[in-house]
């Protein structure tokens, strides 16, 4: 066995000092009466194995006589799951931002300025980012501006694009929020009463807004009628009309 060992590791192994041969054994199995040199080498070896600093809690096996497999108590100041790691790394703001309120599901809400239908899966139109990793594009050449001869290749036919290529203008439908309607109502000059009344007034208002000229004509007619004494029920009819509007 020793021959094989020496043939493998060379002849220098035979000149190993006697103390170093004991280093091959585990620390928990010291010889019964170790020499002073051996103890010193072991005490030097243990800190190297354990990487301890300061007072070693673990003693050599001979001193832990009634116990075996006695290990060190883990150092208390080590960062573990015992501490709130989100607080430790100052991520409370990020946590409250993302977990405090509802994050919108669609990609278009994250990139609202990006044109096109970006909410559809990238695997459908071959625009998946994963394909960049799986099949990286052939690159390496630097980008150089197109000269006149190269630009000749980009002379296009006149006219609109075929239907299947008009993807740039398609935007995902934006939902109309009810919030806007609420904003509009208080701005109305007429205070809202019952919903049926307000709807009715809206319709009337639309009608009134369009023919401004008609109003002016009516006013002129009224002025003329006031001057004429034959006009019946001027004082009685007008207040009734105003009441009905209100």
């Amino acid at each position: 066995m020793t021959e094989i060992f020496s043939s493998l590791y060379g002849q220098n192994d035979g000149q190993v000092p006697p103390g170093s041969s004991t280093l091959g054994f585990g620390a928990g199995r010291p010889p019964p009466q170790p020499p002073a040199q051996n103890q010193a080498s072991m005490s030097a070896q243990i800190p190297l194995q354990l990487g301890d600093e300061g007072p070693a809690l673990r003693r050599p096996g001979a001193m832990n006589e009634p116990f075996y497999l006695l290990r060190e108590i883990p150092v208390g100041n080590e960062l573990t799951g015992n501490t709130n790691l989100i607080t430790h790394y100052s991520l409370e703001h990020a946590y409250n931002k993302f977990c405090g309120k509802k994050v919108k599901e669609k990609l278009s809400s994250f990139l609202p300025e990006l044109p096109g239908m970006i909410d559809s899966p990238g695997s459908q139109d071959g625009s998946a980012l994963r394909s960049l990793i799986e099949k990286p594009p052939v690159c390496g050449n630097s980008f150089s501006p197109l000269t006149g001869a190269l630009l000749a290749g980009f002379r296009l036919h006149t006219g609109p694009l075929p239907e299947q290529y008009r993807l740039m203008h398609i935007q995902p439908p934006k939902k109309k929020s009810k919030h806007k309607h609420r904003h509009h109502r208080p701005q109305d000059p007429i205070p809202p009463e019952t919903p049926s009344d307000s709807d009715h007034k809206k319709k009337k208002k639309k009608k009134d807004d369009d023919p401004d000229r008609k109003k002016k004509k009516k006013d002129k007619k009224k002025k003329k009628n006031r001057h004429s004494p034959d006009h019946p029920g001027l004082t009685g009819s007008q207040p009734n009309c105003s009441n009905s509007l209100r």
């Binding site: 669609k106 970006i118 909410d119």
Partner: peptide, 8 residues
């Protein structure tokens, strides 16, 4: 992103 979902 490939699934059209918000990366947030």
């Amino acid at each position: 992103i490939d699934q059209g979902r918000n990366p947030q």
